[in-house]
């Protein structure tokens, strides 16, 4: 295996993980729709509201859509950028800008990742769980927090791969700008 092939193979693996997580995020979105429609139907027609929808949507589905879709959205260029300075740069300038952005983003999400690991571990070790009997789901709290390190972890891999690719040549930045 040569050095040039290694990143591309790793990248393909990352892409695979991203796609899988994005599919889960899409399913969470569908679940959000269904659960809320079900709540209306149960409440209005059957007078038996589910009662756990708010907590479920907020602590699980919203969190899943965001964190599971995070790296996928980054790769597919979903995040809005302000381009007019970038467009006036040559390849070297573009490369430099992309590199700074990726490194700073890596730093931010490394901190968020670490924070996510800490809160998940904290909730796990303290055995945090709402008591049953309320309307809310009595699920361990860490199952909601774990989406943070999961989503940020994959984004960190993606950013690392992108930074590594930048270093191997400026063509990359232009390729990205086009997508």
């Amino acid at each position: 295996m040569t050095e040039n092939e290694a990143p591309s193979r790793a990248e393909r693996a990352i892409t695979g993980i991203e796609n899988a997580l994005a599919t889960l995020a899409a399913l969470a979105l569908g679940a959000m729709l269904l659960v809320m429609v079900a709540e209306v139907v149960m409440r209005y027609i059957l007078s038996a509201p589910l009662g756990w929808t708010v907590g479920f949507v907020q602590d699980y589905l919203m969190v899943a859509v965001f964190f599971l879709g995070l790296s996928y959205s980054y790769r597919t260029g979903a995040h809005v950028t302000i381009d007019f300075v970038y467009r006036r740069q040559g390849p070297r300038g573009r490369l430099a800008m992309a590199l700074i952005g990726d490194v700073l983003s890596f730093a931010l999400f490394a901190l968020v990742f670490a924070a996510g690991v800490a809160t998940t571990a904290h909730a796990w070790t303290l055995g945090e769980i709402p008591a049953p009997g309320g309307g809310a789901l009595s699920w361990p709290v860490w199952t909601s927090h774990v989406f943070v390190p999961l989503g940020c972890g994959v984004l960190l891999l993606r950013l690392a791969a992108t930074i590594a690719a930048h270093r191997s040549g400026p063509a990359r930045a232009d390729l990205e700008a086009g997508t």
């Binding site: 980054y74 300075v85 952005g101």
Partner: peptide, 12 residues
Amino acid sequence: LIRIPVGFAIGI
């Protein structure tokens, strides 16, 4: 201005 995605830039 150096084209860091808006949400990332604000967070950083």
